[in-house]
């Protein structure tokens, strides 16, 4: 029977089961990440956003919530154009933050 709608899977985040290793390491390497106020300026200017949904704000949020697959999908679309850095009201070097994140594996280790 098709009711025209269906139940969607729960999107609840259980923080107890989230591994924060990558986020913790990022914060140690890029302490500026802590100053993010989630204003979304980066998302608004992102060149990749229209066709990929990339958003630095969501990347930082996703890391905190253990949404690793979403984070990686977004990171793999970044073209490093640097516009997010230019508009960040907190002066976060988001471009370098993305590069640093790409160097970390899921356990939060810097690959060599």
């Amino acid at each position: 029977m098709d009711f025209g709608f269906k139940l969607s899977p729960s999107s609840a985040v259980n923080l107890d089961t989230v591994d924060h290793a990558r986020y913790d390491r990022l914060v140690r390497l890029e302490p500026d990440a802590l100053t993010c106020i989630g204003c979304g300026s980066c998302s608004a200017t992102c060149t990749a956003a229209p066709w990929s949904g990339m958003s630095v704000r969501k990347v930082i949020l996703g890391l905190q919530r253990g949404r690793d697959d979403e984070v990686d999908a977004m990171l793999s679309r970044c073209m490093l154009c640097g516009k997010c850095t230019m508009v960040c009201p907190r002066g976060i070097n988001t471009r370098h933050l993305i590069l640093t994140l790409c160097r970390l594996n899921r356990k939060g280790e810097v690959v060599r």
């Binding site: 066709w51 990171l75 793999s76 679309r77 970044c78 073209m79 994140l101 790409c102 160097r103 690959v111």
Partner: peptide, 13 residues
């Protein structure tokens, strides 16, 4: 430099 994650653009339509 080595990266754990490399962007990929080959699949963009």
């Amino acid at each position: 430099r080595k990266y754990a994650l490399s962007p990929s653009f080959a699949g963009i339509n």
